[in-house]
Design a protein around this nucleic acid. Structure first.
Lengths: 106, 106
DNA sequence: TCAGTATATTGATATTTATCTATATATAAT
DNA sequence: ATTATATATAGATAAATATCAATATACTGA
C-alpha cells in the first residue's frame, strides 16, 4: 500500500504536536493505559482523550479495553509505513512526480 | 544534534499539509524555481510563497536567488535528521522517556 | 527611465484545532 | 443499589493557519 499526499498528510498532521510526539515516545516501550500516560503531562484527562483519538483515527495507535482501563499501543507497521513514505518523498525515485513530463519541464 | 519534541513538532507541522508534501516530492529531483513549482498546483502565487516560507522556516528547504528567480531545493541532511528523529521516537531505546523511573512505573 | 516579470508581503476571512469545564458512560467494589 | 473510578463526549473559546486579492519589492531589458 502506498500513501498518497492526503493520506500521508493526515498521519503527519496527527504527529504534528509536541504532546502527541511525547505520547508516541512513551508508547514506544510498550502499551500503557491512559491514566499512566496522563501522569507525564500537565493537561487534563479530556485533552489526553482528544489526543489519543487523533492518533487512533490515523491508525498510528491502537487501543485494547480491559475492565475500566484502556491500554494504548503503537501500530509499529503503520509507523514504519509513514517513515517509508517520507523516505520515498525525499528520494529521487522513478515514480517521482517530477518525472511526469506532461506537467513539468525538469 | 538531537531534536526535542518542540523542534520535531515544528518540522513535522511544516510537512503536515498535502500541498507541502507534494512540493517536497517535486524538489526531491533537484532544485526548481517558484514559477515551475507553481505549475503543479491550483492555488495562487502568494499561497505558494507562503508554503515555501513555512518549509524554509524549519530548514527543510533552502533558497538560492538568481536574478528574478528563486531556486528552491531540499536540505537533505535535515530531512534525514527528521526521519532519524521519528525512527528514534518509535523505537524502544535506552534514552526513551519511559526509562525515567521518577515519573513512570513502566 | 519605463515597462514587464518573479517573488514577497499585507490584511482579511474561513476553517481547524488544542484546551478547558461540565457531563455522560461504563465498569468495579462495597 | 450505591459509590467510586477510568475514560469518552459535548460544547465553548482562543489561537493557528490556508487561502485569497491587492500591493510592494526587486530585477531585467528596451
Amino acid at each position: 500500500m502506498k500513501l498518497n499526499y492526503d493520506e500521508g498528510a493526515k498521519i503527519i498532521k496527527a504527529l504534528a504536536d509536541p504532546n502527541r510526539l511525547k505520547i508516541i515516545d512513551i508508547l514506544s516501550c510498550g502499551e500503557m493505559c491512559a491514566c499512566d500516560i496522563l501522569e507525564h503531562f500537565d493537561f487534563t484527562q479530556p485533552t489526553l482523550s482528544h489526543h489519543m483519538k487523533v492518533l487512533m483515527d490515523c491508525n498510528i495507535v491502537e487501543c485494547r479495553k480491559e475492565g475500566l482501563w484502556s491500554y494504548y499501543s503503537l501500530n509499529i507497521s503503520n509507523c514504519n509505513k509513514l517513515i517509508l513514505f517520507l523516505m520515498n518523498l525525499i528520494t529521487d525515485t522513478d515514480e517521482c512526480i517530477c518525472k511526469d513530463k506532461s506537467k513539468c519541464k525538469c
